[in-house]
Design a protein around this nucleic acid. Sequence first.
DNA 1: ATTAAAGCTGAGTGATCGCTCATATAATAG
DNA 2: CTATTATATGAGCGATCACTCAGCTTTAAT
Lengths: 200, 200
Amino acid sequence: MRKIPSQARSKATIDTILSASTRVLLKRGYDKSSTNIIAEIAGVSVGSLYEYFPGKEAVFAEVRRREDRRLFELIMEHPEPASIKELLKLHVAVYLEFVRSNLALHVALISDVPQFAVTEQELPLYKNYIPWATKFLLTHREELRSFSDLSQVTEFVNRVSRATIDNYVLYAPEQLNDAQIEEYLIELLERFLLKREAVS
Amino acid sequence: MRKIPSQARSKATIDTILSASTRVLLKRGYDKSSTNIIAEIAGVSVGSLYEYFPGKEAVFAEVRRREDRRLFELIMEHPEPASIKELLKLHVAVYLEFVRSNLALHVALISDVPQFAVTEQELPLYKNYIPWATKFLLTHREELRSFSDLSQVTEFVNRVSRATIDNYVLYAPEQLNDAQIEEYLIELLERFLLKREAVS
DNA sequence: ATTAAAGCTGAGTGATCGCTCATATAATAG
DNA sequence: CTATTATATGAGCGATCACTCAGCTTTAAT
């Protein structure tokens, strides 16, 4: 981002560029998504694009950042879980919902767009959600097996869910349906987290 | 692949091109790895490259295929597991070994090279290993919880392991060391698979 | 020794790339 | 109204791209 936009007009231009980028990415793939094409589809001049983005990579980095924000907001919309099992459902089901709600873009961002210097740590999901979920586990610690580092466990659970879902969606979309993925994953994670007596 | 090489000379040329491609990928990234540069680094003319590959994508698809073969061979080298826990260790530890043995290339292939039309089904890992592992589970079925489709479970276990390891290696390399990843994953999968009494 | 097939060469073509900058218009401040 | 700043334009530059092809060399078969 080269200039910070101050007027509403320029913010609209940025939005136009980003939504055009998404459309171009889906239609032509990352390789063939040039700044010239993006500007043309956006109905904006190349110069304008370079006012706000140092290049193609930065444009798609922003597209990705907005998708991440969308996931975070989707999680926040949902009611607070009342039990560990519900927390896991939140993890798994909401991520599935997120992926399905814009499947083509999600797949393209993972399989086609290079993942340059993505510092997950900055994302709202990691800054806010992981600490929150860790506290939640802490209040239910009598149901849990003993772990030396709970926030590590929260992150592990989160990564297992997302990585597995992405893997199925990308490489084996026909192998399991969403309900099956959800069932397997929740069973998997519940048995990992809970004491034997507490497993339903 | 345009022509099938019949002489040893041309097979050597292909090898040279592929190893040069790997070096160029690591040094310049996928975007800036042109066929011209690859040929130059390989000490071969562009024309020769196009004799055997229809383009840049095909070159890197072959690089990926060779890495997959390397993983398969690594698995085959290891002794047969004697228990389910050992099978899980085979899953997890060997994949970690594979990833670590050529980390930079693995990361580049995942995060930088677009994953065009990879049909996992054709890979030796899926054609040979999954059926084999399923049979192994079947012979130990008295230790297992009841599952309606065991080959589905084998695949699930495999995908969870690989996706999670890739995720940590790519996005959170400092978060957990290999021993911790291995410990978490094996615990996770063992509790998922085994009856309560059988969990160590 | 002759010949056909296989393998290799690299200058060159047209297309496209990322990106700049001189110029113009719109919004805001004084 | 005027001056200043913010925003937008797009022709065009130099670099690089993927890819071809006509001619050359090596290998293998006879």
